[in-house]
């Protein structure tokens, strides 16, 4: 579904990615974990052509995405839940969802997709006339996910969906991501929360200072000493 090879990208003279390789097969849930500043968000933006890359190849569904503008990638089936949620704060919940469905759906498709989002997140239905900016952090995250689902994406990219959320929401969001994947959505999950990511993902990549330093089945990475030390808080990890 998605293939990234030798990706290098940066901001001016700063090199943020120094050769990233990753692969997401159809139907997979793959995690990309790494600490703050490792280059996770830059990887996502380079995949979407929101930041230019200086080297490497990216292909979506086998087609190179070299000169494909971000909005066209969205229309071809890449859905995004951006870091920090970034809901359209002064628009209502319903308008946010409509915007999510604008590019890829007809009016009746959009209505059905919205109905499904409301079934998944009943709280969004209750709040559909409220401004998105007035929602709590957890509700905004649900809205950001719902908005991305409105276009029925084939590949869903999530950038730190658990960031800044209360623990009950964190659990719920991870459970939901696992469920979406079971329902057939291919997912690349970017996270700092390695514990929960490795629980729901099939495979994972560990990114450090712009390089993929480790990769493999999530079950193996959970016990990898390097991962345990750096991301799972040493001895407490293997609960």
């Amino acid at each position: 579904m998605l293939s990234v090879r030798g990706l290098r990208a940066g901001y001016g003279r700063i090199e943020a990615l120094r050769g990233v390789d990753l692969e997401v097969a159809v139907g997979e849930l793959v995690a990309l974990i790494g600490s703050n500043g490792a280059g996770k968000t830059t990887t996502l933006k380079a995949i979407l052509n929101l930041v230019p890359h200086s080297a490497g190849r990216i292909a979506f569904r086998g087609e190179p995405t070299e000169r494909v503008p971000p909005h066209v990638l969205a229309r071809r089936g890449i859905g995004v839940v951006p870091e920090g949620r970034r809901v359209f704060a002064i628009s209502t919940v319903q308008e946010n969802l409509e915007l999510g469905g604008l590019a890829r759906t007809t009016r009746s498709d959009a209505r059905r997709a919205m109905e499904r989002v409301f079934e998944t997140f009943p709280v969004l239905r209750e709040r559909r006339r409220q401004r998105a900016g007035s929602l709590s952090g957890g509700e905004q995250q649900m809205l950001a996910i719902g908005r991305a689902l409105m276009s029925r994406p084939d590949l869903l990219l999530l950038d730190e969906p658990s960031m800044g959320l209360a623990p009950i929401y964190v659990e719920a969001i991870f459970a939901l991501i696992a469920r979406l994947n079971r329902e057939g959505v291919t997912i690349l999950l970017i996270e700092q929360n390695a514990t929960l990511s490795l629980e729901i993902a099939a495979r994972a990549y560990v990114l450090e200072q712009g390089c993929c330093v480790l990769s493999g089945p999530a079950a193996e990475l959970r016990h990898h000493p390097q991962v345990v030390d750096a991301y799972l808080g040493g001895e407490f990890a293997d609960r």
């Binding site: 979407l48 969205a74 995004v80 970034r86 359209f88 704060a89 628009s91």
Partner: peptide, 12 residues
């Protein structure tokens, strides 16, 4: 409101 996210939503 947000050019970058608008693009992510498929808006030209």
């Amino acid at each position: 409101q947000d050019r970058e996210v608008a693009a992510m939503m498929g808006i030209d």
